[in-house]
């Protein structure tokens, strides 16, 4: 469980191979007298998918906009694709893709036309390793818009429009892709196709992806690592599995015996059950074991952060975790 880091612990120094696509240390943002980010640390390696979760107003959008180079930070050490975003030039810009919430632009353009046009800006930045731009017919296939290529953008449905946004985000074959709530308005089939696309980008093209979402199920499916941002700092970080096990801690075991209900919480559910059956055998009825879900973990963490309760469950688990 080494990937789960305590808040405030110092991350390992960057490896010399420069595999670190995102390297953020102590990022701070202040608007007037209000601190929005109080020292965010995060790193991402090539091909890694990171999900940034957090309640509204936690600073997700601010963080992403700073990393995209669209907003100036107040303080902190930042390297995005090896470059400080405040000094990123067009060559740097060509290596990343941005999919923001709710675009409504270019309504009169045809889908194919828009992708060809925006793609053409990337051609001078093509390298032997990364051929830019992505050929439009292939790209349309990849996002499932091939049959709508000749349509005007304003004629697309909400989900199709969103897929076009994603297509625009990846037309330059980015090494780093920012996705801000990418699947809002998707039907389940479109969502699944989108998830496949994200896996494909990360696995085949080695694209590093930072996405924000409110959908915990989506974060669990897509992300290698989840970062929970609340109150302007990263309050937890780890794989979906680690987070849910670590933070919500114990599994909950319910059963009945002689008509009485029992509830027990155990870190090692299997060992507990073995002992339970050894003692009571067939008397144990209606057995139910519930593992903590990512949602439980998320709610526990955010609740604790918001209520400021330092003696809450999550803190206890943090301690347990660090002793293991």
């Amino acid at each position: 469980m080494t990937a789960v880091e305590l808040p405030g612990t110092v991350a390992a120094p960057p490896p010399p191979d420069g595999d670190l696509v995102l390297d953020v240390r102590d990022l701070r943002m202040r608007y007037g007298t209000v601190d929005v980010l109080h020292g965010v640390d995060l790193t991402a390696r090539r091909g890694e998918v990171l999900a940034l979760l957090g309640p509204n107003g936690a600073g997700k959008t601010t963080t992403i906009e700073i990393l995209e180079g669209f907003r100036m930070r107040s303080a902190g050490e930042l390297r995005v694709l090896g470059v400080d975003p405040a000094r990123g030039d067009e060559r740097w810009r060509a290596r990343m893709g941005v999919v923001l919430q709710s675009w409504r632009d270019h309504g009169r353009w045809r889908v194919q036309e828009l992708l060809t046009h925006l793609g053409s800006f990337y051609a001078p930045y093509s390298t032997d390793r990364v051929r830019r731009p992505w050929p439009v017919p292939e790209l349309l296939d990849a996002v499932g818009l091939a049959e709508h290529a000749r349509k005007r953008v304003s004629q697309l449905s909400g989900g199709q429009r969103r897929r076009l946004d994603v297509a625009v985000g990846i037309v330059g074959r980015p090494e780093l892709l920012f996705l801000d709530e990418p699947t809002v308005g998707f039907d389940p089939a479109a969502r699944r196709e989108f998830h496949e696309l994200v896996h494909r980008l990360a696995d085949l093209d080695d694209t590093t992806i930072l996405l924000t979402t409110h959908d915990l199920d989506e974060a669990e499916k897509l992300a290698d690592r989840i970062l929970i941002l609340a109150g302007g700092r990263i309050i937890a970080e780890g794989s979906p599995d680690e987070l849910s096990r670590r933070i919500a801690g114990n599994a909950e075991i319910r059963w009945t015996r002689d008509g009485d209900r029992f509830v027990h919480s155990a870190a090692d559910a299997t060992a507990f059950l073995r002992e339970l059956f050894r003692q009571h055998g067939d008397e144990v009825q209606e057995l139910e074991v519930r593992r903590p879900s990512l949602e439980d973990a998320y709610m526990a963490l955010v609740y604790e952060q918001e209520s400021g309760a330092r003696d809450g469950g999550a803190a206890r688990v943090w301690q347990q975790g660090s002793q293991e």
């Binding site: 995209e68 669209f70 923001l100 709710s102 675009w103 270019h106 925006l118 990337y122 930045y125």
Partner: peptide, 11 residues
């Protein structure tokens, strides 16, 4: 409508 931001996100 975001056209300018789109332009800004493009090299």
């Amino acid at each position: 409508d975001g056209t300018l931001l789109r332009a800004k996100a493009t090299p």
